[in-house]
Amino acid sequence: MNKHVSGIRLVIALKELWISNRILVYSFPLIILFCFAIYYLWPGGIFYEKWFNPKAFSTKEAWSKALLATYTTQRVFILFIIPIYLVICTKPLLDRLNKSERTNLTPITRLERTLGLTLFVIGITCLGVACFTLYDHVIVAWFNKLYYEEAIRYLEAQGDLYPNISRQTVLFPIQINILGIAFMMILLLLPLYFLSLVFFRKNSVILFLGLLVIIMITLAFFLRWLFAHETSHISIPIQGVFPLTLTILLLASYWYLAMATFYHKLKEKEI
């Protein structure tokens, strides 16, 4: 069994993915920016109305009122472009691992392929989250420069002595813990996707989505049952070093087990 990882072969495994997807990777930051543009300029939204229908907010007070009343945390869903991008980037390789004689006879070990794939998807995910965070902060800074003073003046005019703007408005970036949850959710789904591609030879993406729906429904029923039957007064803290460490360890274990299954499935695969 090839347990030794060669740096050269690992680089080649990554190079395969890079050369096949470099245009997609280069365009990824632009795509995320485009998603932000679509989000903010979606017809019916306050920014769309402000820029394309100035009469909608004829006074500054009307605009400030709308700005403070509009919650925009849903923009975090732009991060779902990351798993879509990852599927587009990795599906050709995973299909070749299922079917291609040349790919399976290329002198790269399954461990190196698994590692290469893991590094690539983590890299793309980090790139996506980094771009999202950067754009979000820049856009929020820009909106703050344009509208923050107006919003504070509006609140003071309403009699609010200690004006407090909700963190869910466009004047605050998405909180780091929400980004963290989104990042973890993407990383949780990826191993399941890889396993689906190697276990289901046909219609793998549809079957993966079906599996996902089943898992989500099962989870929803379980949580509903759990909350309906909860009688205990014991609360489990989710903040702090120990729970965070435990969460990270559990995630890492899940990833390791899933990718180990992926690795062993590759070993058993006949072409």
């Binding site: 090839n2 190079k15 040349r102 006879l105 070993k267």
Partner: peptide
């Protein structure tokens, strides 16, 4: 499918299964 074995075997299949890159890229990789 040990890598030492695979590096000493080549299979020219009937269906040509090469990546859509330049020949130079394929060679260099």
């Amino acid at each position: 499918r040990e890598v030492t074995f695979l590096s000493d075997v080549y299979f020219v299949t009937d269906e040509v299964d090469l990546p859509p890159w330049t020949i130079s890229n394929f060679l260099d990789t």
